[in-house]
Design a protein around this nucleic acid. Sequence first.
DNA 1: CCGACTTTGTGCATGCGTTCACAAGCGGTA
DNA 2: TACCGCTTGTGAACGCATGCACAAAGTCGG
Lengths: 256, 256
Amino acid sequence: MASQRGEGETTTTPVEPADRERARAIPEAAVARLAVYLRVLSGMSDQGVTAVSSEELSQAAGVNAAKLRKDLSYIGSYGTRGVGYDVEVLVSHIERILGLTRSHSVAVVGIGNLGHALANYGGFPGRGFPVTALFDVDPDLIGIPVGGIPVNHIDEITEVCLEREVSIGVIATPPPAAQSVCDRLVSAGVQCILNFAPVVLQVPDNVEVRKVDLAVEMQILSFHVARRADEAAGVSAGIDSAGNNGLGVDGMVIRP
Amino acid sequence: MASQRGEGETTTTPVEPADRERARAIPEAAVARLAVYLRVLSGMSDQGVTAVSSEELSQAAGVNAAKLRKDLSYIGSYGTRGVGYDVEVLVSHIERILGLTRSHSVAVVGIGNLGHALANYGGFPGRGFPVTALFDVDPDLIGIPVGGIPVNHIDEITEVCLEREVSIGVIATPPPAAQSVCDRLVSAGVQCILNFAPVVLQVPDNVEVRKVDLAVEMQILSFHVARRADEAAGVSAGIDSAGNNGLGVDGMVIRP
DNA sequence: CCGACTTTGTGCATGCGTTCACAAGCGGTA
DNA sequence: TACCGCTTGTGAACGCATGCACAAAGTCGG
Ligand SMILES: NC(=O)c1ccc[n+]([C@@H]2O[C@H](COP(=O)([O-])OP(=O)(O)OC[C@H]3O[C@@H](n4cnc5c(N)ncnc54)[C@H](O)[C@@H]3O)[C@@H](O)[C@H]2O)c1
Ligand SMILES: NC(=O)c1ccc[n+]([C@@H]2O[C@H](COP(=O)([O-])OP(=O)(O)OC[C@H]3O[C@@H](n4cnc5c(N)ncnc54)[C@H](O)[C@@H]3O)[C@@H](O)[C@H]2O)c1
């Protein structure tokens, strides 16, 4: 689920679920899975598969079959009972819901290690996300084409973004520059931001931010090994390597 | 939340929450946030801040103050009422919980666009995740150092991973190679995998997989703009650009 | 045309995560 | 020492998401 939205919600129609709007409210978690189903379905389509059951699709997508059916039910009833789903039909409906009927042009800001990788990556245009603009501050980079697109100076961000109708901004600058870059993207009218810098961005309510934080991902993995490790070692001994009382278990104990 | 774990749960002690184990069960979502708090706290510590209240910290981390306190309560009670938290104390406890007291060495497989960026990135070692091994199949890459580490051939993966005690494997190969690479990592004893390839990996229960799927992130962003766009345009008209009946709203209507 | 079989769509229960609200606890002050 | 104001820690309520289980709805063979 998104991590950078928090307070935004409270401002939009406090307590009044007009049922028309509720119909549009697909759970955030379901949206993420729909994108995965779409990828799997596209792959099937490419291989000439024309029909699929919820069981097959759910296995390919790595989820529970009931969950898959519920997710699909949010977008409508396009299956045939006793048979399954038509792959093409499902693809087009998911694309429609995800807003992929038109393509969304992407700008990458910060053409360093990561920015180069993103600009050179061929996978986005095919999925409806053409990279159309690159920005940096480094004079050595300005004008140099990366992945076919010449790098512009960050100061040109407003004009270029408006001209090329950029709808998604990707931030791949060092952390200290991220907020400032974000602000510039927002004032250039970009309403969607994908942030790779390990920084919590401040944005107005009408802008959607998603972050990709690799260090956090690794730390979550680290947490799970640690858990597994001392589950295996037995939890009975209350003292761990650091000499702390084990895990602060007391916190969970109901006081007598 | 993780997306590649699903079925695993059912196998581990079906229905019996021994309260000792439950104490260890920190909600997955909370773990992700703890990692963010840790980063923010480290930043504060570097700036000489020694104490912080839940209100301040929660703002810096972009979350609700109550949620922050609950998250911290999962790891114990290390605050002082009426005062707040000692930054250093919190840092050390979060590090302990996340298993960051020892460092976890990382192997990157697939030294293409993305693999290069990861190998060159200086941010991981400092956070306890030194990159110690790189693998590829391309003969032109083998032996070449990237970010100071020479690339090994993928066939050496088992020996090298064991020798360098790799605990996290990062997959940055093209999608078709991902499952095979994953299997090799698993048989080399790697229990944590971070997957950049847009593929659903199949792994045994004792292996933890997290995926980073940029296309999915962008599609989620796309979904939100689309929602906003036709909220603004008004939903009353039942026909959209593609000529479909609007959004399959019927699916949500209760039959009379 | 009918009955058996298959698979969808979903009501419902359960569990998890978030948020509220407040008592408990601590430091400072008179 | 007793009081006051502030902040933590958490019980409890709520809301969202997951998974089950089954009726509804379709296909296919006879
Ligand atoms: N490279 C990785 O694998 C990786 C992994 C995790 C996180 N990150 C994060 O991604 C971001 C980029 O990482 P990187 O390795 O590519 O860094 P980098 O230093 O290689 O590249 C940063 C680029 O941003 C440019 N830049 C600096 N300030 C700018 C500004 N104000 N406007 C526009 N451009 C500006 C620099 O000129 C440089 O080209 C960092 O925040 C980093 O923490 C990177
Ligand atoms: N580059 C990006 O910005 C980006 C963005 C989103 C997703 N991805 C995904 O990340 C993955 C890597 O992307 P990339 O742009 O770096 O690709 P790339 O083609 O530049 O690099 C892939 C590398 O993997 C190596 N490789 C191929 N088969 C291998 C095998 N069996 N074992 C070991 N190495 C092998 C290749 O030799 C190559 O060096 C892809 O799955 C891609 O879909 C990349």
